[in-house]
Simulated assay, not measured.
Amino acid sequence: MVARPPPTTLPSRGALLSEHVDPADDASGGSSAVAPPHPLRTRLLLSLAATVLVLDLVTKLVVVATIEPGEDIRTLGGALYLTQLRNTGAAFSFAEGFTVLFTLVAAVVTVVIVRTARRLRSTGWAVALGLVLGGALGNLIDRIFRDPGFLRGGVVDFLSVFGPDGSVFPVFNVADSAIVCGGILGVLLAIRGVEFDGTRSGADERAGTA
């Protein structure tokens, strides 16, 4: 009797695929595409900015249409008064008379934030910059389109807390609130060493790698 050779087992298609090594991966010691540590937060920044802008514009339109200049409407038992004032200064009526300067500053801030958004991977910074961007655009639109003229328009302020006409605290609007909240959040993130790309710098980064 003639001995037959053992049957040859052909490798499966999955095994062949698993054993295949891409030349580019082999040369680099691994995959050439490395996923970033954090996803981009550009959409979050722009969505929040758009929300703040729409809310600011709508509230200003309602105030201008329903409240006479200088009129005070008492609400929340006197904790909040609704009024209509025109502010030619910065947030909370600061430094009135420098309208053109603040208009240009708001325009520069807008451009810088939009450019920064292309490399933004921190959720905290996305929220902070989104608040500032939406508030800056809201007040910038007032300065461009409202009286007394281009770049010199008066911003509509209508929120007065604990007293009428800003007797206790300067009158402000939604945009002012967003700018201040975004600025405070940005300061806290900077103190903690959080970078725009979501990483931490300085001592926090060293502690995280220890």
Score class of each variant (00 low, 15 high):
3 A>F: 11
4 R>A: 00
4 R>P: 12
5 P>M: 02
7 P>I: 07
7 P>R: 08
10 L>K: 05
10 L>D: 00
11 P>I: 09
13 R>Q: 09
14 G>H: 08
17 L>W: 14
17 L>P: 04
19 E>R: 14
21 V>A: 00
24 A>P: 06
27 A>H: 12
32 S>M: 11
33 A>S: 07
35 A>D: 09
35 A>V: 15
39 P>G: 03
39 P>T: 10
44 L>M: 07
45 L>Y: 14
45 L>K: 13
48 L>V: 06
50 A>K: 05
52 V>Y: 09
52 V>I: 13
53 L>F: 15
53 L>M: 01
54 V>S: 00
54 V>L: 12
55 L>N: 03
57 L>I: 13
57 L>K: 09
58 V>Y: 04
59 T>E: 01
63 V>L: 05
64 V>D: 13
65 A>C: 08
65 A>K: 13
66 T>N: 11
67 I>E: 04
67 I>D: 02
68 E>Y: 11
68 E>P: 09
73 I>W: 14
73 I>V: 12
74 R>W: 06
76 L>Y: 09
76 L>R: 04
81 Y>P: 05
82 L>R: 03
84 Q>L: 11
84 Q>K: 14
86 R>H: 14
91 A>P: 15
93 S>Y: 08
95 A>R: 13
96 E>T: 15
99 T>P: 15
101 L>E: 03
101 L>Q: 11
102 F>Y: 14
104 L>H: 08
105 V>D: 05
107 A>H: 04
109 V>Q: 05
111 V>E: 01
112 V>N: 00
113 I>H: 04
122 S>Y: 08
122 S>G: 00
123 T>E: 01
123 T>M: 02
124 G>L: 05
126 A>C: 02
129 L>V: 07
130 G>L: 05
130 G>K: 10
131 L>K: 07
132 V>P: 03
132 V>D: 00
133 L>N: 06
135 G>Y: 13
136 A>L: 09
137 L>C: 06
141 I>W: 11
144 I>K: 01
145 F>T: 12
148 P>G: 02
150 F>D: 01
150 F>M: 03
151 L>G: 03
151 L>M: 14
152 R>Y: 07
152 R>S: 08
158 F>E: 04
158 F>D: 03
162 F>L: 10
163 G>W: 11
167 S>E: 02
175 A>T: 09
180 V>L: 12
180 V>D: 04
180 V>R: 10
181 C>W: 15
182 G>R: 14
182 G>H: 14
184 I>T: 12
187 V>H: 09
190 A>R: 08
190 A>S: 10
193 G>C: 06
196 F>R: 06
196 F>M: 08
198 G>W: 04
200 R>K: 15
202 G>C: 03
203 A>H: 08
204 D>V: 15
210 A>I: 07
